Simulated assay, not measured.
Amino acid sequence: MEATAEQAEQRLAHECAVAFCVEGDSGEEVVLVQEISARTLRSVDLRETRELVSHLVLQHHGVCLSDFVPVKTGSLARTSSGKISRSATRQLYMARKLRPLTTSKLD
């Protein structure tokens, strides 16, 4: 799903993303957190990007995203070796400690 987000918007190809599941009102839901650099942020429409990523994830993976969370570069949790930590990022999301660049949740 992370690669699909990169395909949705070419300018995201060098940005990091992580997808994970959370328990929602209707069962398991999928969230995608996407880092976006200040440079990329100046040249993309976050609403259009969110809609395109959501559409492509559904088309390619058969999964509806419950949330697309664009965050500043460096916001994703990382291990001591610099790899993205999916579980730690999920914990930040669940604790509402990520600072999204936009607050619109997907419907």
Rank of each mutant, 00 (worst) to 15 (best):
G27Y: 10
E28D: 07
V30D: 00
V30E: 07
V30W: 13
V31G: 11
V31T: 09
L32T: 05
L32E: 09
L32G: 04
V33Q: 05
V33K: 07
Q34V: 13
Q34K: 12
Q34G: 05
E35L: 06
E35W: 03
S37R: 05
A38W: 05
R39A: 14
T40W: 06
L41T: 02
L41A: 13
R42Q: 15
R42P: 04
S43K: 12
S43E: 13
S43Y: 04
V44P: 06
V44Y: 05
D45C: 10
D45Y: 03
L46T: 11
R47P: 07
E48K: 10
E48I: 00
E48R: 10
T49I: 01
T49L: 03
T49H: 01
T49Y: 00
R50E: 11
R50L: 01
E51K: 14
L52C: 04
H55K: 15
H55I: 00
V57R: 03
V57K: 03
V57W: 02
L58Y: 15
L58T: 13
Q59E: 15
Q59M: 12
H60W: 01
H60I: 00
H61R: 07
H61N: 11
G62H: 10
V63Y: 02
V63G: 01
V63K: 03
C64N: 15
L65Y: 12
D67R: 09
F68V: 04
V69I: 07
V69S: 01
V69K: 05
V71N: 14
K72P: 11
K72N: 13
K72Y: 06
T73L: 09
G74D: 10
G74I: 03
S75R: 10
L76R: 11
L76Y: 07
A77M: 11
R78D: 01
R78G: 02
T79Q: 11
S80K: 05
S80V: 03
S81P: 00
G82T: 04
G82W: 13
G82S: 06
K83Q: 13
K83W: 08
I84A: 13
S85W: 05
S85T: 05
S85K: 08
